[in-house]
Write a protein that binds this DNA or RNA. Structure first.
Lengths: 211, 211
DNA sequence: TTAACTCAGTAACAACTGTTACAGTATGAT
DNA sequence: ATCATACTGTAACAGTTGTTACTGAGTTAA
């Protein structure tokens, strides 16, 4: 495991810390769609993402959902960090967007390392910072943009994460993540296709213009 | 200053830290409406709120705005924390919601103290946690609630912050903070009045039912 | 090849929100 | 008292989004 760790986090952490991570961390490999975290679940470990992508979703009590943001290589889940402190339950749901490789750190180490390693502390602060910025961005989108703009941004983000111009999703799946209905998504996608921005196929969408 | 510091933060921080805060912090008293932070401004100090309340607003490029959340006694601004790290500009606007008393800490101390004092570290983490939870709450409101529910929640929050059943705002001011139009606010408020939930006056609203 | 199922396209309509316009009332300044 | 201004109420309408219903085209399994 140590080589993948060094590759992704070597520039961030000092050797002693990398050594400790290697000792206490457990390697985990999950496939696309794997549920890493459910709402209400207690958090026992903190993930360091080595490869792949994870999507973070917010659920409300009526079963509605909304995509908050994606995590990529080098990221960790700030929600996990934050939950460790209060020993509270998860407020969000985490699902593998792509096949992913993770190192799971027992939460007891969290506090120990924040005192011991400056690099760890900075990593944690930086993670909080990134996540707050993502949340702000999410708020901007739902507060200030109309559905057609949100949809287009969503498609571009998905495309970037998957590193492909082809998005493998049904209209229904997109509707869930944007918290709207399938019919609305179909309608807006059709308009995007008419404007030669995308091409629609069954179960997939080609992005033609990345502008 | 030391007595107000001890009163509000004495249970959180050890004496040595309180002493340091007292030495390097500067006391600041501002009145309602005072702009503590504009978008794009560099951040030179971190505020510890002693008394009063501060509202945190998000602006978009078209001059539209949206209320994110309120800070109260004992809170600090996580956005400030986060900006200190990257030496970046503020992403938000902060305005005194009520007359407020603050202690301003030079940002150089931030990192020094996170290494030195466990209580400070925990305070900073807890602040991040609280702010992330507030942001989640804000997202819930704008994503899952209709305008009438958002309006009612807004009124109740304002009332709680001001510690009064009377809200001193015009419909236009409310419209700005909810990112909608004055006419929509007037319309929905009228409906709330018809349902005996509020009473409307010029420049103020009485909340009748707090349920 | 059927049958069952999933997915996408479309129309018609409803609900909610945003916009424009105008009227009336309260407030404060001169 | 008069005037200008700020605030609120209301109507009429437009635009966006959400809902229901139905159709037909792919896909998969028996």
């Amino acid at each position: 495991m140590i080589q993948e760790l060094k590759q992704n986090y070597g520039h961030l952490f000092e050797d002693a810390l990398l050594q400790e991570i290697n000792e206490v961390g457990t390697f985990k490999e999950v496939s696309e769609g794997y549920k890493l975290m459910e709402v209400g679940q207690y958090i026992k470990a903190m993930p360091l993402l080595i490869e792949g992508a994870i999507k973070i979703l917010r659920d409300d009590e009526d079963g509605d959902e909304l995509l908050l943001y994606f995590l990529e290589r080098g990221d960790t889940c700030a929600m996990t960090l934050t939950c460790c402190l209060g020993d509270t339950r998860s407020e969000i749901r985490a699902v593998a967007e792509l096949d992913a490789k993770l190192i799971m750190i027992p939460i007891e180490k969290m506090e120990e390392w924040t005192g011991k390693y400056k690099s760890w502390r900075n990593f944690v602060f930086q993670s909080y910072h990134n996540r707050l910025m993502e949340m702000l961005d999410t708020i901007d989108k739902i507060a200030f943009l109309k559905m057609d703009e949100r949809l287009l941004k969503y498609l571009k983000e998905k495309s970037k994460i998957a590193n492909s111009n082809i998005i493998q999703s049904t209209h229904q799946e997109i509707a869930y993540e944007l918290h709207t209905s399938r019919v609305v998504v179909s309608r807006l996608l059709k308009t995007l296709e008419k404007n030669n921005i995308i091409k629609l196929n069954r179960n997939s969408i080609d992005i033609l213009k990345m502008s």
